[in-house]
């Protein structure tokens, strides 16, 4: 409405055009200055909050621990150590896995016997009432006890939340895919490793093979400390590679069985599996329907 009134005579004069640019520039500079000031005062606090939330997640997995420290942070991995009285209880891998809507950021705790100590979701934006059910102790505790060679233990997905459940499982598997030798890590930070005390005898027998594995790791680590700097690469030597036995077919969720096209790889790493996962995602609803049909047919 006001525009017509303002079509004044001097509107096209060079002086006026310069004024337009000058005013807009001045306002931008002013706002930028205010923002710079606010950023200066909040920057440290924001960084603190981020690491505090993660440290809290670590300690909620290792409930007996009293301290958690960032051990290593690189582009694709972020590892925290959980301490108790100066000894290392285990480590936590912070991992992002893409769920149904956005990333699921989670902390996967792995205790000193290289079994999953717990999974904690730090942030997620899954559908409330459906995908958000994965953020429950009931579901997350299903992963406890998984080891490097069988991280997911074939535990069931939550019905209706297949994609979200898979995303969490992928995160757990990816966390186990990162090879960390706690003994060498402990030597590096100058602390000792507290061996996990098994809760029951049955678990102890399960854990035994892992312990021999870890002692083998110790030998390797003592031979060449240079390996410490890149714990991922020697993984192919130390560990008979957790991924390749990507006995994809072993990690089938639910009771879908039968048709291999309903079996999706649990590991986000390999390109092939990623492709499969993407497909399953794009056809999410259709897939669920066919799953159901399949089951009823089998019955």
């Amino acid at each position: 409405m006001d525009k017509k009134e303002n079509l004044s005579t001097n509107e096209t004069s060079p002086k006026y055009l310069v004024k337009l640019v000058a005013v807009l520039t001045a306002i931008s500079v002013l706002v930028a200055a205010i923002l710079a000031a606010v950023n200066f005062f909040t920057k440290g606090k924001i960084a603190d909050n981020g690491s505090k939330a993660k440290e809290k997640a670590v300690l909620s997995i290792f409930t007996s621990g009293d301290e958690s420290r960032l051990y290593k942070k690189s582009e694709n991995e972020e590892i925290y150590l959980a301490y108790k009285d100066g000894g290392i209880l285990g480590y936590c891998v912070f991992i992002s896995s893409s769920g149904f809507s956005g990333d699921i950021d989670m902390m996967v705790g792995i205790s000193s016997d290289y079994t999953t100590a717990g999974v904690k979701i730090v942030s997620m934006s899954e559908t409330p009432g459906v995908g958000s059910k994965t953020n429950s102790d009931e579901f997350l505790s299903r992963f406890i006890g998984g080891n490097h060679s069988d991280p997911v233990k074939g535990c069931d997905a939550i019905s209706g939340a297949t994609i979200s459940s898979k995303a969490v499982a992928e995160g757990v598997a990816a966390a186990h895919g990162i090879n960390i030798d706690l003994e060498t890590v402990a030597a590096e930070v100058g602390a000792s490793v507290i061996q996990n005390v098994p809760e029951s005898d049955a678990e102890e027998t399960n854990n035994e093979p892992d312990e021999t594995e870890s002692s083998a790791d110790v030998d390797d680590g003592e031979d060449a400390n240079t390996e410490d700097t890149t714990p991922d690469e020697p993984s192919s030597e130390n560990d008979p590679e957790p991924e390749p036995p990507s006995g994809n077919d072993n990690y089938v969720y639910g009771e879908v069985g039968g048709d291999p096209s309903y079996r999706y790889g649990r590991y986000a790493e390999t390109a092939e599996n990623q492709y499969r996962i993407e497909i399953s995602r794009s056809e999410e609803t259709a897939e669920v329907e066919t799953d159901d049909e399949d089951e009823t047919e089998e019955e």
Binding site: I34, L35, V38, N39, F41, T42, K45, I46, N49
Partner: peptide, 8 residues
């Protein structure tokens, strides 16, 4: 600015 303050 508000976003940064809320984050902090």
């Amino acid at each position: 600015a508000v976003e940064l303050i809320i984050k902090a």
